[in-house]
Each structure stands twice: as C-alpha cells, then as structure tokens.
Design a protein around this nucleic acid. Sequence first.
DNA 1: TTTT
DNA 2: TTTT
Lengths: 111, 111, 111, 111
Amino acid sequence: MNSLKNSVRLVGNLGMDPEVKMFDGNKKLTKLSLATNDSYKNDKGERITETQWHNLVVWGAQAGLAGDMLKKGDEVVIEGKLSNRSYIDKDGIKRYATEVVVHEFLKTAGK
Amino acid sequence: MNSLKNSVRLVGNLGMDPEVKMFDGNKKLTKLSLATNDSYKNDKGERITETQWHNLVVWGAQAGLAGDMLKKGDEVVIEGKLSNRSYIDKDGIKRYATEVVVHEFLKTAGK
Amino acid sequence: MNSLKNSVRLVGNLGMDPEVKMFDGNKKLTKLSLATNDSYKNDKGERITETQWHNLVVWGAQAGLAGDMLKKGDEVVIEGKLSNRSYIDKDGIKRYATEVVVHEFLKTAGK
Amino acid sequence: MNSLKNSVRLVGNLGMDPEVKMFDGNKKLTKLSLATNDSYKNDKGERITETQWHNLVVWGAQAGLAGDMLKKGDEVVIEGKLSNRSYIDKDGIKRYATEVVVHEFLKTAGK
DNA sequence: TTTT
DNA sequence: TTTT
C-alpha cells in the first residue's frame, strides 16, 4: 500500500446507511456517502457553511465491518486514497467517476 | 480553512505544463494534472504499476507561483481538499467533476 | 505556514482539563494532554492496547477556544506540527522536549 | 496498524547517513535524523528559516531498505506515528524521548 | 443525503 | 491522565 503518494482524510457524517454489495458470491464492497461541512465567514462577516458530498468505497474485510458498525448520521473519520475510474454509461458515452477507496475508518464516540 | 475535515495529500509528477487562466481581469486559476504511481505485487508475484491522474486547481496568490515555478515532468508534493462540483454539459445534461483544490505545493529537489 | 513539510494528525481523548496560561498580559497558551489508543492482536491472538500520551500546545486565538470548549475525557481530532525544543533544567543540564503545536482542533460529536 | 489515530508526515533532508543496528542476530532497526525547514516572514518582513530536527526509527523489512537506499543529504518524504518512550539514563533518572516510527518512506527524484 |  |  502506498498511502504516502495518495492519501485522503475526511471527517464528516454519513448521509445514508451503508450499501453493502456482494461480488462473485464472497467478495464484499460497501458504499458510503459522506458529507464534510466547511464553515467560514465571508467578506460581509456572514457565516457560510459549504457541504461537500464524497463517494466512498470499502473493500475486503473492512467492507463487512463498515456495513455492520455504521449507519446514517454517524460521524466518522476515514483515511483512503483517491481513485478515478472511467466507465461507459447507458448511452455509450465514456464517463469518469472519482471515489475515495477507504483503508481505515473510525466511528467517533458521538452516536 | 478546515484541512482537518477534508485533506488530500499527493506525491507525483506533472503530466503537462501548468495551465494558467485569468478571471475578471485579475483573478488567477492554475490547473495541474498530476500522476500518482502505485506499485505493488499481484497474486502471481508480478510487479504492477497503477497510475492515477488527478485534476488539481490552484487559486489566488499560489496560482501565479504554480504557473511560474512548475513545468511538465516535475515531481511535486501537494496538500489540498477534495471538491466536487456539478455543471451542465453542452448537451444540457448535469455532470459531476471532482478536483483537488490545492492549498500548498512543493517541488522536490529532483528536476 | 508549512503543514506540507511537517504535519501531525491525532485522534484521541484528553487526559485532563486544558491548562490555559497567560504571557505578557495578553498572549495565551493552552496545554493539552492527549491519549491515542492503538489496538492490535499479538502473536498469540491476544488483543493488546497501547496508549501513547502526547503533549500539545495551542497558541493565539485558538488557545482561548481550546480552553473554553474542551475538557477532560473529550474525544478530539487535531492537526499540528512536530516541534522539538531544548531547555536548561533546574540542575543546569540541557534537556529536550517534543510537543505538537496545534493548528486546528475539532471536538467530535461524542461528549 | 492505526495510522488514522496517530500519523506524522514529514518532508525534509537527512542530516547523516542512516545508522543500521542489529538486534537478536536478525532484527534490524535503522535510525534517521531528518531536518524540516520552515520558512516564513516575521513582523519586520525578514525571511526567517526555522529548522527542526526529528529522530526517526525504521523497523523490520523497511529498515534494511532504508539503510541501503538512503544517505546523508537525501530529500525524503515519510509517514509514521509519534512514539513516546521513557528510559533510565546513566544517572538513574527517568527520561523521555519522542521518536517517529516510520511506516513508509520515499526518496524524492532529487539526489 | 448528514451534521452543528 | 483519557477512551472502548
């Protein structure tokens, strides 16, 4: 693993329950949707909150754990890598998707 | 700034010269394309190199610096945040793009 | 600031209430003691928890905030830099101390 | 491994050749001394460079690699964890030492 | 779609 | 000295 060259860290809340998928009968993949809320004051001194939604995927042993331990609304800390993949959509056009492939996650003491 | 909640770190090489754009006559934006190479051994013991291309944007004072100091092939270290935005493409369809908004960059002693 | 060259990230719990100190009548410094708990299985399959205690210091505007918002037992996420300093102890011998100078902190939803 | 709870990232130069030590006939430990240079402008507009020296240790398979690949002056990027240990010095007094236990390292294209 |  |  090379987290030195490609590393993402996020702290935020899950917008939905984890979505667990099975592949080839035994491989697990869990999808998470995580919101990070950035709060700052603009030029006029008004407090602005900017929300970013991130698509996360968890593979392997961690995928099952994520599916079992996490639920909508949970505050989590994750470390992973940025992954860009292309696919052909239903109209035959090449599309790009960016995901964070999660290596480690942690549910805060919160919920 | 809240690099605690949303932070990306990449070490890689630039695939092209920086692309500097002017906005409103005085605002600068610099686009970078960065490759990260992840190397590992597969099940058969063969060495596999996986390359990911990342779209980076640099705003403000740093944008000019990036345009001046960096060039194609340079090895750089960056820290930034993941930013997802949507836009309407030329066919009127909503698309999503993910970029890394760079806060800090560093050219290694290399090139 | 150069968090690219020197960056520490910790997630843990405070072992004591923040210790706020005043300097020169108006400068604030807050000291925190943070435990990180690393849990793993040893050769015999026994679960081992290893606790590290870290000395943190918060300067400036953040120092007051840390003193007001945080208390013993809180779960916090921090980003800072490693700082090594030397001093002369009461016996006239040169000593070294390592601290994490905190740039950002976040109390989790927990407590 | 739990790099989520305790993670250090440094970019700097080695102040000496790696020091490789053998334990129990087959275990390797490599010590590195790394300088990080932080440059900023003070109140008077003068450019100040502040150098921090960090003690790093590399264990296991990586220890041999570090000993072979790295030398004095090299620019390196590392990821590791903060580790605090106590020991009894030659005068029988308890002392504390902080080290960065390196998980991953990377020599830049530089030297 | 979350959270404060 | 914390927490699970």
